[in-house]
Design a protein around this nucleic acid. Structure first.
Ligand SMILES: [Zn+2]
Ligand SMILES: [Zn+2]
Ligand SMILES: [Zn+2]
Ligand SMILES: [Zn+2]
Lengths: 163, 163
DNA sequence: CTGCAAATGTTATAATGTTTCAAAATTTGC
DNA sequence: GCAAATTTTGAAACATTATAACATTTGCAG
């Protein structure tokens, strides 16, 4: 059993945030995209934790800090961040999470703890490979893969045995 | 390249419907569950094609045939059908599709054509295996797998080359 | 028949996401 | 620098998807 992955144990999360923002800045510069204040702030809010946020959660947070935004503001920022591979959308939760592999070409796979709500993004190339070969066996041309695993993270498994 | 799977080519679709309804009847009897007229009708509507239907599509169809139902009626029927493994929910589309392997224990994988809208459900045990072993490598206990592949079906690939 | 539990009806409301048009900011060509 | 073009943001209304709460009906066991 591996050392527990970041979301599931205490860590200096400020590092996660700073790193994500620095990466985003670099990626946007490289792609000639504008990481405007709103977009950056939304990204930062999403990175507040390893739990996904809904668009209206973000909207509420922006409101609480005085920036009275309407839904399109948030959805546009999210679209931008999705477009540039800085966040992922978790379909099964209607929510959004920071990408831990921004910049790299990848197909995310998400381990979602139903207990604590934390999400771990895995690269899982062998899964992507299996998916692609299954699709190919049906002559299907895959473009976008949604792969979300709900279950119990290591920590919450332990806790659930303490009852 | 395999023979094109059912959704992507002409076939006697009435067979699909009858089979699905017969299976549902058998499964419900076996599980002591009541396949009431509304539930059966919703299942039949979903099976009208191999394209997923939204809850409000179903609601509209029920309305058109004189049964003036409200949203909870449809969502309750859908919950029942989900519970008993007779339909699947496609998270990325907020819609529902008939299960082609009702009764068998399985984790569905869905190939969704973005052009024609048809959905093919695959068993893909080797993908499930890869997913489970990736989860295990993180000491994660998977319970529910959402695996939806959007792309182009064989037919629509051919058509898109005719432009 | 009677009483209980499951299923359905009904109304209202919550949560999520989009369209549209106007205003402001930023970039581009000169 | 400056005007035009483009991108971004603001704002209001609206559309879609889903649930809560409570009343009523139905099916069934005793
Ligand atoms: Zn962190
Ligand atoms: Zn957990
Ligand atoms: Zn068919
Ligand atoms: Zn197609």
């Amino acid at each position: 059993m591996p050392e527990s992955a970041l979301p599931y144990r205490p860590h200096n999360h400020q590092n996660c945030v700073s790193q994500a923002l620095a990466d985003a800045t670099a990626i946007c510069r490289q792609q000639n995209a504008r990481l405007t204040p709103i977009r950056e702030r939304v990204l930062e809010l999403i990175w507040q934790s390893h739990k996904p946020l809904g668009a209206y959660d973000i909207l509420g947070m922006l409101g609480a800090e005085g920036h009275n935004a309407a839904p399109p503001t948030v959805y546009r920022a999210l679209d931008f961040l999705l477009q540039h591979g800085l966040v992922h959308r978790i379909s099964s939760l209607n929510s959004f999470i920071g990408c831990t592999q921004a910049g790299e070409h990848h197909r995310g796979m998400f381990l979602i703890c139903r207990q604590c709500g934390n999400v771990l993004e895995l690269a899982a190339p062998e899964v992507a490979q299996a998916v692609e070969s299954a699709a190919e066996s049906e002559a299907f041309l895959p473009e976008d893969i949604t792969l979300e695993i709900a279950g119990l993270c290591p920590r919450c498994q332990v806790e659930s045995r303490h009852d």
